[in-house]
Design a protein around this nucleic acid. Structure first.
Lengths: 191, 191
DNA sequence: ACCTGAACACCGTTCAAGT
DNA sequence: ACCTGAACACCGTTCAAGT
């Protein structure tokens, strides 16, 4: 017999591996090209194998991806004024969303559930506990601003274009604009 | 011969009719079900006929839909402080976006072009002329907040769900939250 | 339990053809 | 100029079957 190239023992499929591969495809080629078949190829598996780990199929995958970029935890040890906490959370959320632009439209569109919902509630409690009254409204305003900022920043970077050529020079402007508006919003929420 | 039901003279296809039908489908059944073939059916035409009016196909249609909900004009006679103008523009934008929730993810994702870009520039000029310095940053912050607010409001209304059952009770809360954050942001942008 | 292969109903888009 | 019909390459998902 002739020695064949070692067929390494197939790493078993797992939700984590599926999600990683899906994010890689969506970020690299766009959400439109994230296909069950392509995802299967990337994982060295037939597309249908994915259904065993995500019985609700592509819809379930989308939910998981949205939650992945949307459920942000901020260190709970955070001593500090509500302003500092709000700022820390806003920055962490922006960073998480910008990390996977290919999946942003899901984050903006899918109703938050699970871990994402819990994170929001924690945020409200943190600000409340730091002395802000009307923390619920404040968190909703901050969330809206962060989501919208990232949407505008990503759309300006031309990401949504068929052939995505990201200009990294833009990210500085994006950050400056983000901080400017965040300052204004936090200041306004105070009075 | 037997009289046939009057086959009314076929109204010629037009970009306007295509866009109207597309919005109707997207709002009623979701963007995922907006299909060239379904769109053709709604217009009593073969899907391929649409390509004659939108040579770049579905991609072009998406661009047009995004622009449709995103290009907002506010009465230019608007005397008033920059605060009043900013508020008027923000409200008009929110209304326009909420009118077609099915297409919101396009508005948030597609880089603005054409009429939408012009509208943004006009906004900057209006606020500048009303005495606000740093009008560019202010407009970008306001845009981010408006987009994000609508995204959060629509996602909370459960619109993105497979079977969209919109709870109209929510719209009051949405408006209150929107006004609250808008007040804060405008206040903060002032000083 | 986990994965495959074949099959089904449906996509977007092309192209030659009709009027 | 405007629309149709057939065709192509590709979807998501099912289901029975393999191990």
């Amino acid at each position: 017999m002739i020695a064949m190239p070692a067929k390494r023992p197939p790493v078993p499929l797992s939700l984590e591996r599926i999600v990683d591969a899906a994010l890689h495809i969506a970020d690299g080629q766009g959400l439109r090209r994230l296909t069950m078949r392509r995802l299967g190829d990337a994982l060295q598996v037939e597309a249908m194998a994915i259904y065993h780990h995500l019985p609700r199929g592509k819809e379930a995958l989308m939910d998981v991806l949205a939650e992945h970029v949307t459920a942000v935890q901020v260190a709970p040890d955070g001593l500090g004024t509500w302003q500092e906490r709000a700022r820390a959370w806003a920055r962490a959320s922006r960073t998480a969303l910008l990390e996977h632009p290919g999946v942003l439209s899901l984050a903006l569109t899918k109703p938050s559930k699970g871990a994402a919902l819990i994170a929001v509630r924690e945020q409200v409690e943190q600000l409340q506990e730091a002395g802000l009254e009307g923390a619920g409204e404040a968190v909703r305003a901050l969330r809206a601003y962060v989501f919208g900022s990232v949407a505008v920043e990503v759309q300006r970077s031309g990401w949504a274009d068929p052939d995505a050529t990201v200009q990294n020079a833009r990210t500085e402007d994006g950050e400056r604009d983000f901080e400017h508006g965040l300052d204004a919003l936090i200041r306004g929420l105070g009075g």
